[in-house]
């Protein structure tokens, strides 16, 4: 089962090691004729972390840092290029669709865009019942119907609303319908890809509270993908900060928020807009480098205010320091 040689820790629901994901840009006849080089986007470059049972683990970073790709690879919407995925002690990295079937029941996803994540032509009850019926979580349609109504009740809908279509609901309501769908097969693990970033602030709080209530009620573990540090601080136990497909710092929430070590984490925390303080100075200039041509050295070197010469040539590895892992030559 576990061919990584590492011991599986039964406390972990998910163990990801050295996960790599790349995309090749479309390469047509014309490109071949003109001899244009093939372009490969290095989206995720050897990411390792684990999610404990009943825990919220967050991956944080800016757009294009590979956090969503990581989540989508873990739930096997994308085939991993290399690395291993251990789910509930099983190595699912190379599972066929048929082998994935029982795993699918246990790992579901909450999506970012409440307007695109529900099939506009399905009624709410069909949306929630489809996974149940497919996985025989209910003996017949009648039982599925009862279960569906119970789930809708949990996420805050009245029974008569089950007959409506998605467009009759607001963004926050749709997100709750998406959560009900994710819960339909009694999963133990949910990957939530920016679940509140498309929502209004007041609705954001409702959805976050709901997600946390459900964790207690259904004994869920979450992989929480987000760019908003204040949201992450509120929900998570541990987190990893991603930059250009690498995890640059990873550990317990309080350690990282109280004393960030990596210059990128420091910058993110410094510029996160909050009500209680004004941003003193903007520590970062420039933009994220292209994931097509990865820098040889530290991925963050081009924007780092504390760059040294070694950073240009050697890529730092994650090292344990002060109760967390950090990849930086400063330490």
């Amino acid at each position: 089962m576990n061919n990584t040689g590492k011991m599986h820790d039964p406390k972990n629901i998910l163990e990801v090691s050295d996960l790599v994901q790349t995309f090749t840009q479309p390469y047509g006849i014309l490109d071949r004729l003109t001899g244009r080089p093939k372009k490969t986007v290095h989206a995720v470059n050897g990411v390792s972390f684990s999610v404990r049972r009943g825990e919220v683990f967050s991956l944080v970073g800016e757009s294009g840092c590979g956090k969503s790709t990581t989540a989508r690879t873990i739930v096997r919407l994308l085939e991993p290029k290399s690395g291993t995925l251990l789910f509930d002690g099983q190595d699912i990295t190379k599972f066929t669709p048929a082998e994935m079937m029982p795993v699918r029941k246990k790992m579901q996803m909450i999506f970012q865009d409440p307007y695109a994540s529900l099939n506009p032509r399905q009624r709410i009850r069909e949306i929630v019942m489809e996974p149940m019926l497919f996985h025989r979580e209910a003996a017949d349609r009648e039982e599925a119907h009862v279960k569906m109504l119970r789930l809708l009740d949990i996420v805050g809908f009245r029974p008569e609303q089950a007959d409506r279509y998605p467009h009759q609901f607001s963004g926050g309501q749709r997100q709750r319908i998406g959560i009900a769908r994710a819960l339909a097969t009694n999963p133990t693990f949910l990957a939530a890809d920016e679940p509140v970033s498309a929502l209004d602030v007041s609705i954001q709080a409702q959805v976050l509270n709901l997600m946390m209530d459900l964790r207690d009620e259904f004994n869920l573990s979450y992989l929480f993908i987000a760019h908003d540090l204040s949201v992450v601080r509120h929900v998570t136990e541990r987190l990893g900060i991603m930059y250009l497909g690498f995890i640059v710092e990873q550990g317990e929430r309080d350690r990282i928020f109280e004393k960030p070590l990596h210059p990128y984490t420091q910058a993110l925390l410094a510029v996160a807009p909050t009500l209680d303080r004004k941003i003193a100075a903007v520590p970062l200039s420039g933009d994220v480098p292209s994931p097509i041509h990865l820098p040889v050295g530290c991925p963050f070197a081009s924007r780092c205010p504390q760059k040294m010469s070694i950073c240009e040539t050697n890529r730092p590895k994650l090292r344990i320091l002060d109760g967390r892992a950090v990849a930086c030559h400063l330490y």
């Binding site: 999506f111 695109a116 994540s117 506009p120 489809e130 996985h135």
Partner: peptide, 26 residues
Amino acid sequence: KKEYIDAAKLIGLSPFPVIFRHVLPN
């Protein structure tokens, strides 16, 4: 490219059910 298609794949549906139940009506 829309997420509801991802959701259908995550249920475990094979390609043709996804195509006919989720893509076609839209």
